[in-house]
């Protein structure tokens, strides 16, 4: 095994471990809290800043180690040597002959130009109709407050 390969494997393990530990920390806080709430403590907070900090503290050295290795790897130019090899896709290789015809051409066909103009006009009409029917206000109402369920808080 080359040193490069060993470096990449260690870095992979560190990344997976860091993600796994961060997920485990959250799950541990959640299950502890769920157990307390099941015991009837309806106001028990599953997460608090202090609890989160306490859980993150042991993971911090691993995260810093991983970050250090990442910086070192980027500076030394360590990368997967297979990255630039051609894609392993038989269907893709079979289709290569038709690439020229199927690719999006620099000079758009009249049909494409018409369609583009039609979509552009439709978009303008839809936006104006939306402004008139209160759609703009709807977007503002949603965006002006924190969407609790969107960010996972609510």
């Amino acid at each position: 095994m080359t040193r490069r390969r060993a470096f990449l494997i260690v870095q992979s393990v560190l990344c997976a471990l860091a993600a796994g530990l961060l997920a485990a920390a959250a799950l541990s806080l959640y299950f502890d809290g769920a157990a307390k709430q099941a015991e009837g403590e309806i106001f028990y907070a599953m997460y608090t800043r202090e609890k989160v900090e306490e859980k993150l503290r042991p993971i911090l050295p691993l995260l810093l180690g991983s970050l250090g290795m990442t910086c070192g790897g980027l500076i030394l130019g360590v990368r997967d040597e297979n990255l630039d090899k051609p894609a392993r896709d038989d269907r893709l290789l079979r289709d290569l002959g038709s690439i020229r015809d199927r690719a999006v051409h620099q000079t758009a066909a009249p049909k494409e130009l018409t369609l583009r103009a039609a979509i552009l006009s439709l978009a303008a009409v839809l936006i104006i109709a939306g402004i008139l029917n209160g759609g703009l206000e709807e977007v503002l109402a949603k965006g002006a407050a924190i969407c609790m369920e969107c960010v996972g808080l609510g």
Partner: peptide, 19 residues
């Protein structure tokens, strides 16, 4: 909210960005 306000505005924005 499509039950009371048709989603024209957002669809229009997406079509505009897309095209």
């Amino acid at each position: 909210a499509a039950g009371h306000t048709a989603p024209w505005y957002v669809l229009g924005m997406l079509a505009l960005f897309g095209v």
